[in-house]
Write a protein that binds this DNA or RNA. Structure first.
Lengths: 214, 214
DNA sequence: CGAAAAGTACACCGGACAGTGTGGATTGTA
DNA sequence: TACAATCCACACTGTCCGGTGTACTTTTCG
């Protein structure tokens, strides 16, 4: 006589493969959080497994070793970031929108959407040369910038602002807005000020940028 | 008349003491190089001792533990950086010098003098929130910026450029020049280009800054 | 049903590392 | 010469960590 509660099993289990994929995602989530908070070297595989609610063995069955976990984490982060930037460009800097509004909207959105997971900062920091994990090629690191560069070139062609060197303009723009905002957030500069602080930073940055490139 | 020593400490021979001080310096040199290259967690005390040409026991006699070595390293780095910035301000941005020349000279000097030890970048990175070593207060982290801020305020008062908010102007200036240059250096962006690459970055950055703040 | 996939618990290994203890060598100084 | 400061070589402890092996359970599906 079968005592196996088939119905119960079917209800609480959404399929082997799906569940396996969920575990995989949970592992990457945990890994991302820990790598971001503590860095590569100080994050133990046991800690990742514990946080993911998964046995260490499962983790090693999914990914072969710690370096691979790290690589997959950064890859996923990179993809997410790329999507975020791509969406933000399309929706915040559409043809016809006032340039100042568009730039402020874009920067603000990138910063807020990548906080508190702080994808942008995390990505920069994790991909920075620390020689601990295998360093990533700068071609990967700069993908988001390339997207914005293309849009800036179009804006210049339409005469909306002067950026003969689109690559340079993007560098200056991100440095003046997103870069400074992320820096400030990492310093915990305004524990209270919150969004207002970053908003002001971004407004000021866009102001300066437009003064230089209008 | 016999000179009576008040304590043993006063009588200590300059020979021994000097040598001891040299060892101490060598340890800090080694620690700085390794912390910079590998980060805190991945740098072993044994490695520091080996690189300094000093026994591990001597190292532990001088400093009590790894955290203290790290703290002393960052302190020394901070002091060196502050001196570098201070000198650069005094000598590159003197009263009367053409503003563009002064700013280019300043930024170029800060970058070149802090490379390849890359004090500036190192300082930023080591003091960044990584939660591994005891985080430093941002008051320490921002000391160099304060100096430049003061000079910018003077320049504005003299009508040489428009920076009603000196703090903001400094942020924008460093972001546009030193920040981008250091970033590029860390990426190993121009393995060959060398100084020419950073020089162009700085020229472009100063151009943009002056367009925004002239 | 029965095989296989997926996961867990747990013990284990080898190595690295922070930190200590000690005895001995060198060397300025009284 | 005798003493003390300084340093070194070396052995040792406890701990953590990356990674593996294995035996057991649960779930899925032909």
């Amino acid at each position: 006589m079968r005592v196996v509660p088939r119905s119960l099993a079917e209800v609480q289990t959404p399929g082997r493969k799906l569940r396996s994929e969920l575990k995989r995602g949970a592992i990457l989530d945990a890994a991302e959080a820990l790598f971001v908070a503590q860095g590569y070297a100080s994050t133990s595989v046991d800690a990742i497994a514990a946080r993911a609610g998964v046995s260490k063995r499962t983790l090693y069955d999914h990914f072969g070793d710690k370096a691979t976990i790290y690589a997959r984490t950064v890859e996923r982060l990179s993809d997410t970031l790329l999507t975020t930037i791509s969406d933000a460009i399309r929706e915040e800097i559409p043809p016809g929108r006032d340039v100042r509004e568009a730039l402020v909207g874009f920067a603000r959105r990138v910063v807020t959407e990548t906080v508190p997971s702080s994808e942008y900062a995390v990505f920069q920091r994790l991909t920075a040369r620390q020689a601990q994990p295998p360093a990533l090629p700068s071609s990967v690191r700069n993908r988001p910038e390339r997207l914005l560069e293309k849009r800036f070139a179009e804006l210049t062609r339409d005469g909306l602002f002067q950026a003969t060197d689109a690559s340079l303009a993007v560098r200056h723009f991100t440095a003046l807005t997103i870069g400074i905002a992320i820096d400030a957030l990492e310093d915990g500069e305004f524990e209270v000020a919150g969004d207002a602080g970053t908003d002001k930073i971004i407004d000021d940055g866009v102001d300066a940028f437009l003064r230089a490139y209008a």
